[in-house]
Amino acid sequence: MSSVEVAHLNKTYGSLRAVKDFNFSAREGEILALVGPDGAGKTSIFRAICGLIEYDSGEIRIAGYDTSREFEKIKPLLGYMPQTFSLYPDLSVEENLYFYAGIFGLKRHQFNEKKKLLYQFSGLEPFHNRRAAALSGGMKQKLALSCALIHDPSVLMLDEPTTGVDPLSRRQFWDILKHLKKDGSTIVVSTPYMDEVALSDRAILVHQGTKLAEGTPDELIRLFSGRVYLAKVQPTTERMEKLEKIQGIISRRFGSSIHIYPRLDMTKDDFYGQLELAGIGPDIIEPVSPDLEDIFIQLMGD
């Protein structure tokens, strides 16, 4: 039985359809990533699962309980970390933990044990007296995660936990998640960063409230049906505009170079000839293997 099951979820805000007939399930002991740009509907899906918003239609079950009818039974099982930093900035690290321990009904000695454990993995012990407002971005997220973990939830819903966090802290954060997974927790995490898909067990690509693709990182890579070329030139605005005018190719900035996708029916000669006109010679073009972002762009284009 899956820990989180979402079936035919629909959510509209006025005339905007934020989530369209969305289905997925997450199993025990796996990290499922919902990946997509801002406004893809990830947060709406998370809020619906966590009982924070009414949704138009669909069914959501956590550990077999229906969220719309048996949410009180779900609450002790659920650990939720909202997208915005949602701790009390004027309370210290320890006071924040103490508050959440209190409202989840932990006893004093339970709190002390749990606190020790959480400090161990988060490294927040030296800062236990510091106000949450004075923590760095990475530490804030670790504290928020610690608060979401205080009652040993079996299902973790983490809405963009690594957004705006430095790369080192991001890596540490994922290490913590992998550790939690081993204990059998179900972890659903949303992210705008494609590279985090590779760290998850399974990922769902979300765009405009619908599911573009779903699978393990390897499966997703195999979805890519086309070719991708790397042009080792600076992606200046002028150059990108020229490329945009060429029929039959898609291009995007890739660091300090450009990724170019020719249409399947385009011949090699035609492709090279067109690029020559945009000032990109064959000597600086080479075929590369697609990454997840390439797949996302291809799927979005379809």
């Binding site: 009982g51 939720y80 701790l87």
Partner: peptide, 13 residues
């Protein structure tokens, strides 16, 4: 405003 309400609402209170 600070988003703490979201966390409060998912706790058993």
């Amino acid at each position: 405003e600070t988003g703490t309400m979201e966390q409060l609402l998912t706790s058993p209170v």
